[in-house]
Simulated assay, not measured.
Amino acid sequence: MNRVQLRFTVILIIIGLMVSIQYNTIQTPESRDTRDVWEIRQELSKEMQLHSELLKEIRSANDTLIKYENIQSESPEQALRETVMELREYAGLTDFNGPGLTLVVKPSIESMALGNGISIISPELLTRLINEINRFGSQAIGVDGKRLTLLSPIRDINGETTVNGLPIKTPPFEIRIGTSTMEEARQVYNALHASNIGDDFFIDNLSLEIKDPVSKMTIPAYDQPIDNKYLSEAEKE
């Protein structure tokens, strides 16, 4: 094979590779986002809500830090007491008194008319409702008189749905939602009405009544023992 034939062969190989790559690209296009505009808007709304909540947490932490630094220079003991009280409120160890709204979980009218037995709320449905409430914003939540905390388990124990290890009674029962302001209470009210969570209750032969926000309500504090697995008292010097 002379030099001309060798060059011609190499050129043909390069052209063949290029044609093959182009063919594969046409046959296997990159995956595209097939979601419609509404689904994308919903995802964007969730991300914006999360961003807003993170900014709110950052502002709250900065305010607490500034407040602590100001008080610490005047009275370290007072600063420590106020910090402990704020942490107890955040953990749900104190009664909540402020604006909010009440939800009532009841048997659905259709199930009662058909003579079906009263269904208990499942742990999965209750967990989804709590997640919806937390997504829309809340300062405190009480389920059937049981205060929820960040560590509150919602489980099925012997066929009963429990919160903090205590059984939830058969519907009807109340869920109280405490908020920082009346504006936030109205936002939670409107968001729950716009949510499709009510459809999930209907499927389980239950209904969710969302009562109007009120300016004053009480949610009892968490009253169960707290197990500090990772905290210990520092040694006194």
Rank of each mutant, 00 (worst) to 15 (best):
G117W: 02
G117L: 11
G117A: 14
G117M: 09
I118C: 05
S119E: 15
S119F: 10
S119D: 12
S119R: 15
S119G: 00
I120M: 14
I120E: 15
I120T: 13
I120V: 12
I121L: 11
I121S: 08
I121T: 14
I121P: 05
S122N: 06
S122L: 08
P123K: 07
P123R: 09
E124T: 14
E124K: 15
E124M: 12
E124L: 13
L125I: 10
L125S: 10
L125P: 03
L125D: 10
L126V: 06
L126Q: 07
T127E: 11
T127V: 04
R128A: 13
R128H: 14
R128W: 09
L129Y: 08
L129G: 06
I130W: 02
I130C: 06
I130D: 04
N131H: 11
N131E: 13
N131S: 14
N131I: 07
N131L: 12
E132Y: 12
E132H: 11
E132D: 13
I133G: 02
I133S: 02
N134V: 01
R135T: 12
R135F: 13
F136M: 06
G137C: 00
G137E: 00
G137A: 00
G137V: 01
G137N: 00
S138R: 02
S138E: 03
S138N: 10
S138P: 00
S138V: 08
S138G: 00
Q139G: 06
Q139R: 11
Q139N: 11
Q139Y: 06
A140M: 03
I141N: 01
I141M: 02
G142T: 04
G142P: 04
G142M: 02
V143E: 01
V143W: 02
V143F: 01
V143T: 01
D144H: 14
D144P: 02
D144C: 10
D144K: 01
G145W: 08
G145Q: 07
G145L: 10
K146L: 15
K146G: 01
K146T: 08
R147P: 03
R147E: 06
R147D: 03
R147V: 04
R147K: 12
L148Q: 02
L148P: 01
L148V: 06
L148M: 15
T149C: 01
T149Y: 03
L150A: 14
L151I: 12
L151F: 14
L151G: 06
S152W: 04
S152H: 03
S152Y: 07
S152A: 08
P153V: 10
P153F: 08
P153W: 05
I154D: 05
I154K: 04
I154S: 04
R155L: 15
R155P: 00
R155A: 14
R155C: 03
D156Y: 03
D156F: 05
D156E: 14
I157T: 12
I157G: 00
I157S: 10
I157H: 11
N158Y: 12
N158I: 08
N158W: 05
G159M: 04
G159F: 04
G159N: 13
